[in-house]
Design a binder for these strands. Structure first.
Lengths: 261, 261
DNA sequence: TAGTGGTCTAGACCACCAT
DNA sequence: TGGTGGTCTAGACCACTAC
């Protein structure tokens, strides 16, 4: 279990009367290793989004550690939104489907708290060679194939968001306008179900910009109108970037919600 | 310890051969109660920001629970940034002073990753009666006294932020322009040190807006220039609102950084 | 009733820090 | 050397869900 450099202490630690492990310069707790094992299982597709993973006792037996150690590993994975615990039922792989946590990454809310379901209008979906900047952000070689999606989001009939979405072509093989148009629900749910790529976290750079002619026309605002520019990079397992998204938001009647702590 | 309705089970739970506690309809774990006790100690000023709190064993003895239970309580408080654990030393009350986590709530970063320390230029600090909207947000009665601070932030010489900060007058008695001007370091550090009010969390509404004449002049941009509008409400212990802040950010060369997960 | 996660305990040992 | 938080174990009981 424990594969510290310079230590080969077995299910070590407590209560046991073991050989004293050489104090390793780089100490890694057991539960971290368990965490890595479970993450591996998630990444390899051994347990797919929405599915249940083995119970704590079972995992404890498998990895030859105590239940408490498995528990701590799962606790952290649940805190990272990779797993979801449900008392009495089991522990499940988090998913962008079903959950009412569907639009976890869309932070745009209406001034009045009402919940307006939005609809997506696809403008185009085509393949091309990655521009240098996109390639850099997606960790691709320049001119590698990418997919570009352009779309509008309408809240309650009002056109509010214009998105340009860049995806690595190798991962999203077979993604076409038709399949996009047919799919109901969030993009990330589709990416997960259809392409086995799950978005774990994202990092955004937000600015206020003046609407340029093209964008202005799409969003039905005047040229120069202030828009919220949201540049997002999304990551999957192993912190590998798998999406670059540039969004322009009209923030009259809507705002970007953020909580600091 | 356990003050569940319909249950008066003593340091209950495990291993012990206690009377079976009546399954309460509203079950509250022991560690939650410990958490509440500790929070109380923080709020009452028993332990002040930067100070050390009693060790886990000591707290366990005081509350008549096991160390593990105290640990879980402290774990959650540390996750909420109310406490800071330091191995080998002890557990400390979080503070906006010292920490290199000083500007935890300022998310504006330069396009080049360099760290530019910023300077604050106070425009005014005066007392007045709360406008209806501010009163509502601060949970005050209309026309209650408030303090209004207006200031500019300069990054590397460039004027980048204009802030209007509203504080409840009752809490910030004796806050004057002189004291503000004299104080070095973040505002929240001063609020904590000088007024015993610690900001715990904040909620922001972000929009893109066109610069109005007054703001434009202060920020040295043209009227109509796109600015990031950041409306923040900050809360202290017990989720009581104690600051309303409206900021206008110039986002050329700078961006608002946000991480989603 | 059986299985799952959730709470609680008691005790051992480890890593880190101060003295 | 002694104290603090950090890890790990083993075992009990509780709450929730399903069968």
């Amino acid at each position: 279990m424990n594969s510290n450099p310079a230590t080969t202490n077995p299910p070590n630690g407590a209560g046991a009367t073991d050989v004293a492990p050489a104090p390793s310069p780089t100490f890694s707790p057991l539960y971290q290793q368990i965490k890595a094992f479970i993450t591996q299982g998630l990444e390899s597709g051994e347990w797919k989004p929405g599915e249940i993973i083995p119970s704590e006792v079972e995992l404890a037996a498998r990895y030859k550690v105590s239940q408490g150690t498995v528990r701590k590993a799962i606790d952290e994975l649940a805190a990272d939104n990779l797993l979801v615990r449900r008392q009495g039922k089991g522990t499940f792989v988090a998913t962008h489907n079903e959950d009412r946590v569907q639009f976890r990454f869309l932070r745009l809310l209406p001034d009045d708290g009402d919940v307006h379901p939005h609809v997506s209008r696809l403008l185009e979906c085509r393949r091309l060679r990655a521009p240098a900047e996109i390639a850099r952000q997606l960790d691709l070689k320049p001119a590698d194939p990418v997919v570009l999606i352009r779309r509008l989001l309408q809240f309650d009939g009002e056109t509010t968001v214009f998105d340009e979405i860049w995806l690595p072509g190798a991962v999203f093989r077979g993604l076409t306008a038709e399949r996009l148009a047919d799919y109901k629900g969030p993009l990330y749910a589709m990416f997960e179900t259809e392409f086995g790529t799950r978005m774990i976290r994202a990092s955004e750079k937000i600015r206020a910009v003046a609407a340029e002619a093209g964008v202005a026309e799409l969003l039905k605002v005047a040229e120069g109108f202030p828009l919220l520019s949201v540049e997002r990079v999304s990551y999957t397992y192993g912190d590998r970037p798998v999406e670059v998204r540039r969004g322009w938001y009209v923030t009259t009647g809507y705002y970007y919600q953020n909580d600091l702590s």
